[in-house]
């Protein structure tokens, strides 16, 4: 028996757990917990440690499926998995959520985080949620990845559809395992499908309900320790805010202007990702400035800045929803 391993990673809500459930012949081992951060905008439960499933490819070959948690605050699990559980994996599947404002930012982030791991392994980029957001398309991905110096395979999949996720498996082990009966495998896995059994109209309406229920500000406040948020548009006018302190609100706005001024005055600096201010008794103020939008967050001083950054990154990536 040949045992293969593959590791699925990607941002929160990119479909890692769903993809593994679609492929697994066994009841998957998952570690779901109630969402306690900005991911509430997209789902109610999230993976906090890992997902695991097994796919019997043939009588002689088996594929072990591992999934990382998406949140960066569970990064220690990425390390544990890379150095132990999947150190001998065939490849890394990076799931990319096409509804994020800048999917390439996620690709850069994960490729950097898993750089050492993918040096000697296959990297497959699997784009998900393209039924909700068709652009960027396959050609655009290939063009951008080439510009980034990444020469890899890009596959568009629907994580809920086993036959679609099987394309990844074919790409990964198909050339080495010639005896796999792919159509039989596809039939067997059909029971794992979690494709909605509703009309397109109903599906669109239920998707809209989900995002309408939780606003960007509500999602920000779902993270313990975040006490206020302000969201500004490209013209730097306030789109929404729940920062109660007038002084903090003004400070956040002036910090956003400061970042813009710094980038203008010292263009050689490059893009400033964030500016954070802390004080002994004060709430921590953080701003994240992009061309099209800016986000300011107030947080308890005990909350790690890295956690605040991760939340801000997800909030900005889903801001259009």
């Amino acid at each position: 028996m040949t045992d293969y391993k593959v590791l699925f990673t990607g941002s929160v809500c990119s479909g890692k757990t769903t993809a593994i459930r679609s492929l697994s012949d066994i009841e998957t081992v998952d570690t779901d917990a109630r969402v306690s951060d900005s991911a509430i905008r997209r789902k109610r439960k999230t993976t906090i440690a890992m997902d695991y499933g097994v796919l019997d490819l043939s009588d002689d070959a088996r594929l072990h499926l591992y999934g990382t948690p998406g949140q960066e605050r569970f990064k220690f699990m990425w390390e544990v998995m890379m150095s132990d559980l999947v150190h001998d994996a065939e490849g890394l599947v990076l799931l990319v959520d096409n509804t994020r404002n800048d999917p390439f930012k996620d690709i850069r982030f994960y490729v950097e985080e898993f750089r050492d791991f993918i040096v000697r392994r296959r990297l497959i980029i699997a784009v998900t949620h393209s039924d909700e957001q068709a652009e960027p398309d396959h050609d655009y991905y290939m063009q951008e990845l080439k510009a980034m110096g990444l020469f890899t395979t890009v596959i568009f999949i629907d994580a809920r559809d086993p036959s679609s996720v099987l394309k990844i498996v074919k790409e990964l082990v198909g050339h080495r395992e010639k005896e796999i009966a792919w159509s039989e495998l596809e039939e067997r896995l059909a029971v794992n499908s979690s494709m909605p059994q509703v009309t397109e109209e109903e599906h669109e309406s239920s998707s809209a309900d989900m995002s309408e229920n939780v606003t960007l500000l509500d999602a920000a406040m779902n993270t313990r320790g975040i006490t206020g948020a302000i969201h500004l548009g490209a013209d730097r006018k306030v789109l929404s805010s729940n920062v109660s302190s007038k002084q903090n609100k003004e400070l956040l706005r002036s910090m956003i202007n400061l970042v813009t001024a710094l980038e203008t005055k010292a263009s050689f600096l490059g893009h400033i990702d964030d500016l954070v201010l802390c004080g002994p008794q004060q709430e921590t103020l953080s701003v994240f400035v992009e061309k099209e939008q800016a986000l300011g967050l107030c947080s308890d001083k005990e909350l790690s800045i890295n956690v605040v950054k991760q939340q801000a990154m997800d909030l900005l990536q889903w801001s259009q929803r």
Binding site: Q247, E250, L251, S254, L262, L269, G270, H271, I272, D273, D274, L275, V276, L277, C278, G279, P280, Q281, Q282, L285, I305, K309
Partner: peptide, 12 residues
């Protein structure tokens, strides 16, 4: 605005 802020971080 507030002289008590004594720590700043800029990520580039």
């Amino acid at each position: 605005s507030d002289k008590d802020y004594d720590e700043a971080h800029i990520e580039i």
